[in-house]
Design a protein around this nucleic acid. Structure first.
Length: 746
RNA sequence: GCGCGCUUAGCUCAGUGGUAGAGCGUUUCAUUGACAUUGAAAAGGUCAUAGGUUCGAUCCCUAUAGCGCGCACCA
């Protein structure tokens, strides 16, 4: 630490110890000091002898925030928790790496930019064209990235900026292409025409996990297609009935047995339909009339039934959720309008038998809020059930060369205890999700993201790289003559699934990959357990035959004081940056750690942050008091029995705190450290020694100071992971020759 | 329908098989003294309800209620 570092140090020293502690100016300078020291990088820590590989390796890959805007309290909690773990590991002498990065968040970012452009210029992405639009998104992403990086620094995160990654950069693209090809070659990625979740608002497919349900009032209509049709059916969506090709009944249903196998030609509100009567166990006898109009093109279940019974497919709704067939009063109308028209026609013809009010869960696209329309489409999928051979495996219960499936990999990795999910109850939720998991639709019809690495020419297909078939073209030539790349992009979670190892250099065999993978901890919100955590386990299992991490620490969601989810539209969001500017990042961090048990949502109010700001001041003032009373030649002073007891008590408290951190009980560790410092060290020990410092003999004074300084220095270390800024600022007053960041915990 | 969580001081929440803790709030007192961003103290809880296990249960088990959540179904 020389040169450039020095000016920062001088600046820092300029903050007089007898002035008030001002977190805002101090925190900025302290972070600069840390960054200049290079100690966020494990190599540097090794160089100064702080860490050794023999002491163990600790690694975390930061869950990359979306480049959709700014960080919120949830991010702040994540950064605080991870920074505690990382600083503690580093100070404990472990070779410690924390890799930062950002996520392109395909659909979220694209829709955000689309709406910004639309508001400002009244144009949509098609008006701009793919190239121009992507330029705009990149620009937005870049700005957003810069903001986020600044915010991460503000929170005090000791990440290794040299290794920063972006889910959509060159290296990650190589990883994505490599992963895609490998999965394609193994037969796990396939292209198929089937019913998928279509988001008419976002104009793209979405995966099952991106669909959320909202309960709404709906009407259940019971009617016959036409007068001469023998069976009544019930539906909440009469407009889809234009696409019916069958009516299904339960095989044991005596009411309908006589009709099964027959085919009827009917005229349904002006549209001719051919309806076959089939028997299927999926039908419930007691629901509605016990007969189900089968719409293979617009329902997942009906599609499955159509496959089993070899039924015709008849799409009647297009990608804009408008009717593509029907009479003039129906065709081209939105589904909701067509519904009313059809009901009216049925009523007029006397075909409508019943109309009931029901509660219905409707499917909504999580990101855009669009109402999901099941449509048949040609898309790319990952098969989660297909058996394949895993050539090399470190996964418990799956020896190298054994036959397995992606589902099984996801299960075994957790079942065998190789991955521990905290709190444990989420393991059950995880298994439950796997059991219900269907093939993962990975293609998206949006432009921002990793383009699907597949090229087509006539009947030929090339996967992984643009084919370079013509010999006289230079190797750099892209898109060789006549080959067309698939226009779609990949689900953002595809690239996120590779994150623990794509950030470490995979597919190259780097020493980072060797050293830091599997990572120690994945710390993230429980709301992305399926989206991300499960997909990482899937990808890592298949591509590396290993697990991505040892421990999954799931934090709760940060809510406002009334328990509502913080959101911009509600205006109830507490901005972590604003809190840090008012009360300091240290206070913000503590307020997010103490009183927050893993997996439980926490309520946060500004009062709580304010309360912890007082703690920073307390640390500053206690230190100031001790230093003001510095004694001479105190190093060799002999301590009294009571003073020895204080030291012993500190040591045991410290040990308890370490045990809590080891068990990921950060809220307990933080609280204990907080209480010890304030209510034992400041309130009891300092008070007890105060008199000796003032009026004692030289020996008494030296002994008192020695005791206080020892506990103060020790406390600073213990508190450092939780409140890094103020502890470092104080440390610099006492031991300016080194950084607290880089001292050993013991 | 399947599963999960929560219910503890006025509020927000920790926690433990041995007659309960923190922060904020309230009340009283002290202090020009490192710190009013302080200290000392007080009030305030049949730890949701009912059974059971136990020498002993707020904690373990069972049931019930209220609130919340996940998944599935959703004709």
């Amino acid at each position: 630490m020389r040169g450039a570092t020095w000016e920062f140090r001088i600046k820092l020293m300029a903050i007089e110890m007898d002035s008030k502690y001002d977190p805002v100016t101090s925190e900025k300078e302290v972070y600069d000091l840390w960054e200049k020291s290079g100690l966020f990088a494990p190599e540097k820590c090794e160089e100064i002898g702080l860490v050794k590989k023999e002491n163990g390796v600790f690694s975390i890959i930061l869950p990359p925030p979306n480049v959709t805007g700014t960080l919120h309290m949830g991010h702040a909690a994540m950064l605080a928790i991870e920074d505690v773990l990382v600083r503690y590991a580093r100070m404990s002498g472990k070779k410690t790496l924390w890799v930062p990065g950002t996520d392109h968040a395909a659909i979220a970012t694209q829709s955000k930019v689309e709406s910004l452009i639309y508001k400002a210029e009244g144009k949509n992405r098609h008006d701009l064209g793919r190239e121009e639009f992507l330029k705009r998104v990149d620009q937005f992403a870049k700005e957003s990235h810069d903001t986020i990086v600044n915010q991460i620094k503000k929170m005090g995160a000791s990440v290794d900026w040299n290794r920063e990654a972006f889910t959509l950069d060159e290296k990650r693209n190589t990883a994505v292409k490599t992963a895609f090809k490998k999965m394609y070659d193994t037969g796990l990625i396939y292209r198929d025409f089937k019913v998928i979740n279509w988001d008419p608002k976002g104009q793209t497919t979405v995966s099952d996990d991106e669909v959320v349900y909202e309960e709404r009032d709906a009407k259940l209509y019971t009617f016959k297609y036409s007068k001469d049709f023998p069976i009544s059916i019930s539906t909440t969506r009469p407009e889809t009935k234009l696409g019916d090709t069958a009516v299904a009944v339960h095989p044991d249903d005596e009411r309908y047995k006589q009709y099964v196998g027959k085919t009827y030609e009917v005229n349904f509100v002006g549209t001719p339909l051919t309806i076959k009567i089939i028997a299927d166990h999926a039908v419930e006898k007691d629901f509605g009339t016990g007969a189900l109009g089968v719409t293979p093109a617009h329902s997942q279940i009906d599609w499955d039934m159509a496959q089993a019974h070899n039924l015709e497919l008849k799409p009647v709704i297009n990608e804009y959720a408008k009717m593509s067939v029907g009479g003039p009063e129906i065709q081209g109308k939105k589904t909701t309008v067509a519904r009313e028209v059809i009901v009216e026609l049925l009523r007029k013809d006397g075909l409508l038998e019943k109309e009931e009010d029901v509660k219905q869960n409707i499917s909504v696209a999580e990101r855009t809020g669009g109402i999901i329309e099941p449509l048949p489409k040609l898309q790319w999928f990952i098969d989660v059930n297909k058996k394949f051979v895993l050539p090399e495996s470190k996964i418990s219960g799956l020896p190298s060369g054994s036959e397995t499936s992606l589902k099984e990999i996801m299960k075994k990795a957790v079942e065998g205890g190789q991955i521990e999910i905290l709190p444990g109850r989420f393991e059950k939720i995880y298994y439950n999700w796997i059991d219900n998991l269907r093939d993962w639709c990975i293609s998206r019809q949006i432009w921002y993201g990793h383009r699907i690495p597949v090229w087509y020419k006539d009947e030929k297909i090339a996967v992984g790289e643009t084919p370079k078939e013509s010999g006289d073209l230079p190797s750099s030539a892209e898109a060789t003559e006549g080959w067309q790349q698939d226009p779609d992009t990949l689900d953002t979670w595809f690239s996120s699934g590779l994150w623990t190892f794509s950030t470490l250099g995979w597919p190259e065999k780097t020493s980072d990959l060797e050293t830091y993978h599997p990572t120690s901890v994945l710390e993230t919100g429980y709301d992305i357990l399926f989206f991300w955590v499960a997909r990482m386990i899937l990808m890592t299992g298949f591509l590396l035959g290993d697990v991505p991490f040892r421990t999954v620490y799931l934090h709760g969601l940060v809510r406002d004081e009334k328990g509502r989810k913080m959101s911009k539209s509600l205006g109830n969001a507490i901005d972590p940056l604003l809190m840090s500017e008012k009360y300091g990042a240290d206070a913000t961090r503590l307020s997010l750690i103490i009183g927050a048990a893993p997996g439980n949502d926490m309520k946060l109010s500004e009062d709580k942050v304010r309360g912890y700001r007082n703690f920073s001041t307390k640390i500053w003032n206690a230190a100031r008091f001790v230093l003001m009373n510095k004694a001479e030649n105190y190093e060799s002073a002999k301590l009294s029995e009571e003073q020895e007891k204080y030291l012993a008590e500190f040591e045991s408290t410290k040990k308890e705190i370490a045990e809590h951190i080891d068990k990921f009980e950060l809220h307990l560790a933080g609280e204990k450290a907080y209480h010890y410092f304030w209510h034992t060290f400041a309130d009891i020990i300092i008070e007890a020694e105060k008199g000796k410092l003032k009026d004692g003999t030289q020996e008494e004074k030296a002994a008192a100071y020695k005791t206080l300084e020892a506990i103060l220095l020790g406390s600073l270390k213990v508190l450092h992971p939780f409140v890094p800024f103020v502890t470092e600022a104080v440390w610099q007053k006492i031991r300016p020759e080194e950084l607290l960041l880089g001292t050993n915990w013991d």
